[in-house]
């Protein structure tokens, strides 16, 4: 599938040097049931860059993506997306971010087309019917468009979830293990998408284990381990090691010390 066929909706993003950082976190930490999934991440990701989030299972990659997507709130620290603060401007952030998570968020009883049509209404996609048809074609699900998603394999679900991202015009795309469950064609599709987004200046943050495959497609990489950034390479990403304890600020007021 040649990459030129994929329709990635453009968005006016401003000159690269004048864009605010696509993602800026300060001492970001999140606990689940008292145990830290992120233990204090301070980094900035430059707008328009494609960055890999690497690290073993349980390193905090998914937690970081979920926080940036506004799905969950941080326990400590702060996040800004395109200069918008997570606590104040979550609604504006949602308009700019597209998120492919582990869970596809698709409805089993709806067909592929119905799922995308629903998403198009929710996103507010103009010209929805033709955009849905286009996205279905782009992810290679045209033939199964009228089938219920409950009958789909994991790989097909993943393709459909990718198609949903194509319905919006995000400035930041978050991908959590995009290659997982996909066949060879599907993996090529992800490669093409990454290239297409990069071309139009969309920032991409992709959590993956497929280091070798991603290497040529990306500008830089961040390595997480046990909730902390342990290494940073390449361009477009900066990282500050954890500050002393006093610098960790609760995300809400009135957290007792």
């Amino acid at each position: 599938m040649p990459q030129t066929t994929i329709y990635v909706s453009p968005r006016s993003l401003g000159a690269p040097d004048r864009r605010p950082p696509a993602v800026a976190t300060a001492e970001l930490a999140r606990l689940f049931a008292g145990s830290p999934a992120l233990a204090g991440v301070t980094m900035t990701i430059q707008g328009g860059r494609a960055i890999a989030l690497l690290g073993p299972n349980g390193a905090g990659k998914t937690t970081l993506l979920r926080i940036v997507s506004t799905a969950i709130r941080p326990s400590y620290g702060s996040v800004e997306v395109d200069g918008l603060h997570l606590n104040r401007d979550a609604a504006a952030i949602r308009e700019r971010v597209a998120y492919l998570s582990h869970a596809t968020g698709l409805y089993d009883d709806l067909s592929a087309r119905e799922n995308l049509a629903f998403a198009a209404t929710m996103i507010g996609t103009p010209d929805a019917a033709s955009r849905v048809a286009r996205a279905l074609a782009d992810v290679g699900l045209e033939a199964r468009a009228e089938d219920r998603v409950g009958t789909f394999s994991a790989g097909m679900r993943k393709r459909l979830a990718l198609g949903r991202i194509l319905l919006g015009s995000p400035s930041l795309v978050l991908l959590d293990e995009p290659y997982a469950a996909l066949d060879v064609d599907g993996m090529t599709l992800v490669d093409d998408l990454l290239a297409a987004w990069r071309e139009v200046g969309v920032t991409v943050l992709v959590a993956s284990h497929a280091v070798g495959r991603l290497e040529p497609l990306l500008d830089g990489r961040v390595v997480l381990e046990r909730g902390l950034v342990v290494d940073v390479h390449g361009e477009g990403v900066k990282h500050v090691p954890p500050a002393p304890p006093a610098a960790v600020r609760p995300a809400v007021a009135g957290a007792a010390r």
Partner: peptide
């Protein structure tokens, strides 16, 4: 509770 949470974070660091 907060002290325990902070302690877990500091241990991780």
């Amino acid at each position: 509770e907060e002290a325990r949470r902070m302690d877990r974070i500091m241990t991780a660091r």
